[in-house]
Nucleic acid binder design. Structure first.
Lengths: 211, 211
DNA sequence: TAGATTGTTAATCGATTAACAATC
DNA sequence: TAGATTGTTAATCGATTAACAATC
């Protein structure tokens, strides 16, 4: 299929694509140097990353914006849309459900599931929140393999088991617990505690400098 | 002050702390081996990380849970609480504002700011949403140096500038744009696009295997 | 004592960075 | 042609892993 790309590189590619999309439509070419400057990255790193994904680079000119964007989109699978569901329709869950920024990366959130009757029904963007009992059936019918898990920590593992038993192969986990999953299932943790730790420590250092 | 710890290590420490907090109160000792198994990590890595933070490990016994927890909490600065604000009171912003899981990591969200009049006032957990105009004054009076930025992408940089001009030193950025900040300010990006890219690719590989 | 676990020292692995030839 | 940029090859750097002595 595709060349093997490390996780570190894979995580940077969406940033390049996002930047290209902010460029004015008439911009014809963009250099790795330019992208690096805009994203505060090393230009060699950008160049090496792009070389893995696109062969459209031309010495002296850089990359044609449109070709590079298409190559990135193709590589990241933005072309063929996959379906995802949100599990847990609390504030965070509903924010994810109504956020439409994922579609440009090839992921479409089709529905949410929750056990709380109060949250059931249609959201203002027209997406449905179903009772959890309907998950197994709908998951198969809608061919969903990605779940965004936003349930409380104390039931996250239990719900996670139900997901993997019904064909979910990739989970974005917002609950602050480590999930045990079968080998072929990938969990991507989106806890903000680690990020917070980094911020908090940086702050302590900055404030210490000021004294 | 404290020993220098790489960002990679720093990001793992909250996971250890979180796991210790889930242990039953009567658990006296825990080994690096045990923690590693629970979090699906390498035991040598866990042991090395813990050695940087605590000296309470005893051969044969492992770590006394309480001592290790205190050492981690101290290292991560969970003791002295710092104040943070949310900028942008949309669904995500309000979810962050009302989420109380940060306090156990030493960060207390004290208020939110927004320009939309409809969102102003008190939330159901008693936190206030102020108009953005009050930010400079309140930021100084409340000694806030951390901001969680959840405004739309198209005004994120502009708002970011206002933050750094008023004493913000650390920003958790949820907007899908790269922020330009002064050298002493740290931006921690919490975009889920990169995470999504990883999931999406894993899924493509898994589905390819099945054919 | 025996055995499990810690913590450290050395080896490996991978990612980033630097240097440079190729090219438009 | 001259110069900027690409893409590749080699060097460096840092993090992870393995091996092992110390210890309770």
């Amino acid at each position: 299929m595709n060349k093997p790309v490390s996780k570190a590189i894979l995580q940077r590619l969406p940033a390049y694509l996002g930047y290209l999309r902010t460029l004015p439509a008439q911009t014809e070419n963009i250099s790795a140097t330019g992208i690096a400057a805009a994203l505060s990255m090393g230009e060699v790193q950008v160049r090496k990353d792009l070389a893995l994904v696109s062969g459209a680079g031309r010495p002296r000119l850089g990359y044609p914006v449109q070709a590079l964007r298409e190559d990135l989109e193709h590589f990241l699978g933005c072309d063929d849309v996959v379906h995802a569901v949100v599990i847990g329709a609390g504030k965070l869950g509903r924010a994810l459900l109504d956020y439409n920024g994922f579609e440009s990366f090839g992921v479409k959130i089709v529905a949410a599931f929750d056990n709380n009757e109060k949250t059931l029904g249609e959201t203002k963007t027209g997406k449905m929140v179903f009772p959890m009992a309907k998950f197994p059936d709908l998951c198969k019918r809608l061919k969903v393999h990605i779940a965004l898990l936003t349930v409380p920590a104390d039931c996250a593992q239990e719900v996670c088991n139900e997901l993997t038993e019904n064909g979910i192969l990739a989970i974005m986990n917002f609950a602050p617990v480590h999930l045990q999953v079968p080998e072929n299932v990938l969990v991507q943790n989106e806890n903000i505690a680690p990020a917070l730790a980094v911020l908090s420590r940086h702050l302590a250092e900055q404030l210490a400098h000021m004294i």
